[in-house]
Computed example of a mutant assay.
Amino acid sequence: MKKSHRKFVNRIINKLYGITKNESLYLYSLNIATKLFKHSKNSISFDKENNCYWLKNRSKFLQLAERPYFDFSEEDMRQRCQKIFCKYYSPQAKDVILDIGAGIGTEVCFFVEAIKKEGKLYNIEASPTSFNGLEQTVLKNNFKNCYNFNLAISNNEEPIWIEENDNYVVNSVNKNAVGVRIKAITIDQFVTINKITKINLLKVNIEGAEYDMIDGMKDSIHIIENVAISCHDFLFKDGNKIENKVSGFLRANNFQVFYENSGNQVLDSWVYGKKIYN
């Protein structure tokens, strides 16, 4: 659907809501639009208990949203995951995935579909608000092979705080006692506690905390086969400090490293690694 057409449909729906102020009619309009313009099996429902909306395809709860929108599809979400997180590796049945910074669980359906029931998905999210969305996504879909943890990943177990923002995507951790206190752990400790012996894919998106994370995975790196790590240097003013540290660590542990050069600073922040076996 063209961007101009999407704006036109949104304008009509929002104008209708502006006139009527009727939430039920607004939701009904969105449902009609998503079925007509995106997928006939799409639907949007309101979850009164959690005060949120669910974007669905058939019986699958794809994503929760504070405000609903019609222009979504399962295929779009799948392509996004393949383009960003699985650029150089495609999850397979029985794989083990560790998703650090899982957010509200927007990738859960994609990963579970790829690894099948025989695989395992470990989701770590520091933000309590985002973690609740993650938990609800797993519960709504009745995924039995997902394990969710409200933790912050760091280089030690010192206290970590997280500032909760209206936009969950930019929630960030700190050690200055600002925000909500969260239990911290290293990847090495997490792997040991949960008796994980293999990680086929490590995906990381933790708003700059990946710099400290690296110091806490010197043992677990040996059981990891593929990584996709977002290096948030664009949030700071110290050059490519995080990217350089992550890349150097990967190369020192026999990983082939890949970068993107799309011109988009967010997409280009991702560093990919594939273990080289001699």
Rank of each mutant, 00 (worst) to 15 (best):
V112P: 00
V112C: 06
Y122G: 00
E135G: 03
N150H: 07
N167E: 12
I162T: 11
Y147Q: 03
K94D: 07
V169A: 15
I153A: 10
E157G: 08
V96G: 00
F143V: 02
K116M: 08
V96P: 01
N123G: 00
I206R: 12
N205H: 12
V169I: 13
D188M: 09
F143R: 04
E164Y: 02
A177R: 15
K116D: 12
V178L: 15
I206Y: 11
E135N: 08
N205V: 09
F111T: 01
R181M: 15
N176E: 15
E164H: 13
A209E: 14
A177Y: 14
S154E: 12
V108P: 04
N167M: 09
N148K: 01
L98D: 01
G133Y: 04
C109M: 08
T106R: 11
P91S: 10
I162R: 02
F143S: 01
E118W: 00
E113V: 01
N167L: 11
D188A: 09
E158P: 03
D99W: 00
Q136A: 08
A177G: 15
K116T: 13
K175C: 14
T192F: 11
E118R: 08
F111D: 00
K94A: 11
A93G: 10
I193G: 05
P91N: 06
G133W: 05
S130C: 06
E158M: 10
I97A: 02
N194P: 05
V108C: 07
I185G: 10
N155G: 12
W161M: 13
K140Q: 14
K116A: 12
K144C: 07
I193K: 15
F190H: 03
N132Y: 04
V170N: 12
R181N: 15
K117Q: 08
T137S: 08
G133I: 06
G105T: 05
L139R: 09
E125C: 01
N174M: 13
N132D: 07
I162Q: 10
